[in-house]
Amino acid sequence: MTDVTAHLAEAADQPTLERLWLLFRHDMSEFSGSLPAPDGSFRSDRLQAALTQADWAPYLLTSGASPVGLAFVRSLAAPTRVLNSFFVVRGARRTGIGLRAVQEVVAKHPGPWEVAFQESNVAAVAFWRRVATEIAGDAWAEERRPVPGRPDLPPDTWITFDASTEVQG
């Protein structure tokens, strides 16, 4: 499993994205302390925004015929795009699929980017620093910002980089 395609989700992809969203939120609950609702679902406001709002682009990540993840981009009309949610299923992790998926999504929306992650998510820390370096070389920055409306959580770590031109390796 080395190939990946990031395609802009269509209405027919919504059930798949909803299932992947549950897996993503379950993974993230380790770092946010969030629990499922009584029906077993997790908060889905970002999923709904990605599927319905014009300033968002929801991508379904596939390897062959298998869904392997999702990527939600927001702030398409703003000067800086935000990779709001990114998830790769565990069976596809550490195969290079995540890096290739981010590169493909970012290439579809050239310009400045921001990505947030939790410092306690050690795998995400290494992944996003590698992604930034692969896309922007040494021209990326990292800072910590408070989580809006969640003073009980540690600050998020944000990586910023510009994907206007591809780094030659």
Score class of each variant (00 low, 15 high):
G137K: 13
Y59D: 00
F24L: 06
R93M: 08
P15S: 04
L20V: 08
P38V: 13
E119V: 15
L99D: 02
H26V: 02
V125H: 10
T16Y: 10
W113R: 15
V89R: 14
A116P: 00
R81I: 03
D39A: 06
I135P: 01
G149D: 07
A71Y: 03
T52H: 09
L20E: 04
S34L: 12
L51R: 11
R93N: 03
E30W: 12
A163I: 07
A123H: 14
V167K: 14
W56H: 11
M1Y: 11
L47E: 00
A116G: 02
A101I: 14
P110V: 09
G169T: 10
H26Q: 08
D156C: 12
S63K: 07
D27N: 13
A124C: 08
L83H: 00
T133F: 14
A57S: 01
A92S: 11
P38F: 14
P148F: 03
A57H: 01
F86Y: 09
R129L: 06
R144I: 12
L17D: 02
T165P: 02
T157K: 07
L61M: 10
H7L: 05
T16N: 03
L76W: 12
F31L: 03
W56Y: 13
Q103W: 08
D45S: 07
H7Y: 03
S66R: 15
P58S: 02
V106E: 11
T133I: 07
W21E: 01
V82Y: 10
A11N: 05
D13A: 06
V131S: 06
V82Q: 07
V115P: 00
F86K: 01
H26L: 12
P155E: 09
P154G: 04
R25V: 00
L23D: 10
G111L: 14
R150F: 09
A6M: 12
A141D: 04
A116Q: 06
Q48V: 05
G96K: 12
Q118F: 14
V106G: 06
A132S: 09
L83M: 13
P58R: 04
E114Q: 13
F87D: 00
L153A: 07
L70I: 10
E119N: 14
R81Q: 05
V68M: 10
L8I: 04
M1E: 05
P67F: 12
V73Q: 02
R81K: 14
P36V: 10
E30M: 11
W21S: 01
P146W: 05
V82S: 03
G169K: 15
E142Q: 14
M28D: 01
S66T: 10
Y59L: 08
A50D: 01
V106Y: 12
L8K: 06
Q118N: 08
A49L: 15
A132T: 08
